[in-house]
Simulated scan of single mutants.
Amino acid sequence: MLYGAMKVTVGGSLKLAFRPWVEGLEHIPADGPAILASNHLSFSDSFFLPAVLDRKVTFIAKAEYFNTPGVKGRLTAAFFKGVGQLPVDRSGARGAGEAAIKSGIEVLERGELFGIYPEGTRSPDGRLYRGKPGGLARVALATGAPVVPVAMIDTEKIQPPGQVMPKLMRPGIRIGKPLDFSRYQGMEHDRFVLRAVTDEVMYEIMKLSGQEYVDMYATAMKRQLAEAAKAEKAAKAEKAAKNDKAAKNDKAAKAGTDRAGT
Score class of each variant (00 low, 15 high):
His27Ser: 06
Ile28His: 07
Ala30His: 15
Asp31His: 15
Asp31Phe: 09
Gly32Lys: 12
Gly32Gln: 10
Ala34Ile: 10
Ala34Gly: 07
Ile35Cys: 08
Leu36Glu: 02
Leu41Tyr: 04
Ser42Cys: 01
Ser42Ile: 11
Ser42Gly: 06
Ser42Phe: 05
Ser42Val: 09
Ser44Glu: 13
Ser44Thr: 14
Ser46Gly: 12
Ser46Pro: 06
Phe48Arg: 07
Leu49Ile: 14
Leu49Asn: 04
Pro50Lys: 08
Val57Met: 09
Lys62Ser: 07
Tyr65Pro: 01
Phe66Gly: 01
Phe66Ala: 12
Thr68Ser: 15
Thr68Pro: 05
Thr68Asp: 06
Thr68Val: 09
Gly70Arg: 04
Gly70His: 05
Lys72Ser: 06
Arg74Val: 07
Arg74Ser: 13
Arg74Met: 11
Leu75Gly: 00
Leu75Trp: 13
Leu75Cys: 10
Thr76Asp: 00
Ala77Gly: 11
Ala78Pro: 00
Ala78Leu: 15
Phe79Tyr: 14
Lys81Cys: 01
Gly82His: 03
Gly82Cys: 04
Gly84Tyr: 04
Gln85Asn: 14
Val88Arg: 05
Arg90Pro: 07
Gly92Trp: 04
Gly92Leu: 04
Ala93Pro: 10
Ala93Ser: 12
Ala93Gln: 12
Arg94Phe: 06
Arg94Leu: 13
Gly95Ile: 12
Gly97Glu: 05
Glu98Ile: 15
Ile101Asp: 03
Ile101Ser: 02
Ser103Tyr: 02
Gly104Val: 10
Glu106Ser: 14
Glu106Phe: 01
Val107Ser: 01
Leu108Ala: 09
Leu108Asp: 05
Arg110Val: 03
Arg110Ala: 13
Arg110Met: 12
Arg110Tyr: 00
Arg110Lys: 15
Gly111Leu: 07
Leu113Phe: 04
Leu113Ile: 10
Tyr117Pro: 00
Pro118His: 07
Pro118Leu: 09
Gly120Lys: 11
Thr121Pro: 08
Ser123Trp: 01
Asp125Arg: 13
Asp125Met: 12
Arg127Glu: 10
Arg127Ser: 06
Tyr129Ala: 08
Tyr129Trp: 11
Arg130Gly: 01
Gly131Trp: 00
Gly131Cys: 04
Gly131Pro: 00
Pro133Val: 03
Gly134Met: 12
Gly134Thr: 10
Leu136Tyr: 02
Leu136Asp: 02
Ala137Glu: 08
Val139Gly: 02
Val139Phe: 03
Val139Arg: 07
Leu141Cys: 07
Leu141Lys: 11
Ala142Asn: 05
Gly144Leu: 08
Ala145Pro: 00
Pro146Lys: 14
Pro146Thr: 14
Pro149Arg: 11
Pro149Phe: 11
Ala151Trp: 12
Met152Pro: 03
Thr155Tyr: 01
Thr155Asp: 05
Lys157Asp: 05
Ile158Arg: 05
Ile158Val: 15
Pro161Thr: 11
Gln163Trp: 10
Gln163Tyr: 04
Val164Asp: 03
Met165Asp: 00
Met165Gln: 09
